[in-house]
């Protein structure tokens, strides 16, 4: 059975509020939601190098939204989901800033947990974003990680 496409995708420089996103997911499907799983990723002090002071994020406008929708579609085909929200920030970020948000609502927690992890794992290996870490000595582009690719592979 074909179901309507779900998911909201936002690529933005501005910060986001998890409270607001959670509320939006919660009220979107009244009485249908039994579980909402949310994930947020933050800028931390140690990346490819120690002493990270910030991060610059670049993306491929158009392809980014397209690839995230494909990931959400795959998740919605695999688990029973009510709604999905993905937000990814771009531009210049500072230490402790929020980078990414994934929220999934479902009737059951197992579907919400699994889909949230699946979307995040695929986002890391398939969506065209690139991070550049800033530290006292300058800045450098982050290397893609084998561990991230392995996490994605485990879903196939």
């Amino acid at each position: 059975m074909m179901s309507a496409q779900i998911g909201s995708i936002r690529i933005q420089e501005a910060d986001f509020s998890i409270d607001e996103e959670y509320r939006r997911l919660r009220i979107a499907h009244p009485a249908q939601n039994g579980a909402i799983c949310t994930f947020s990723g933050l800028v931390r002090e140690f990346g490819d190098k120690e002493g990270v002071t910030g991060m610059f994020l670049e993306h491929y406008p158009g392809m980014t939204e397209h690839s995230l929708q494909l990931i959400i579609d795959q998740a919605a085909g695999r688990w029973k989901l009510n709604d999905v929200a993905v937000i990814h920030r771009v531009g210049q970020l500072s230490l402790s800033d929020q980078i990414v948000f994934v929220g999934v609502s479902s009737a059951h927690r197992a579907d919400a947990f699994a889909a949230c992890e699946f979307i995040m794992d695929y986002l890391k290996t398939d969506a065209p974003f690139w991070k550049k870490e800033c530290h006292a000595q300058g800045s450098q582009w982050v290397e893609a990680k084998e561990s991230d690719r392995n996490r994605t592979k485990k879903w196939s």
């Binding site: 491929y60 392809m63 995040m120 890391k124 290996t125 974003f129 690139w130 893609a144 991230d148």
Partner: peptide
């Protein structure tokens, strides 16, 4: 067309 290095978002 676009050419780019492996992606590193999230």
């Amino acid at each position: 067309l676009a050419f780019f290095p492996p992606v590193t978002g999230g």
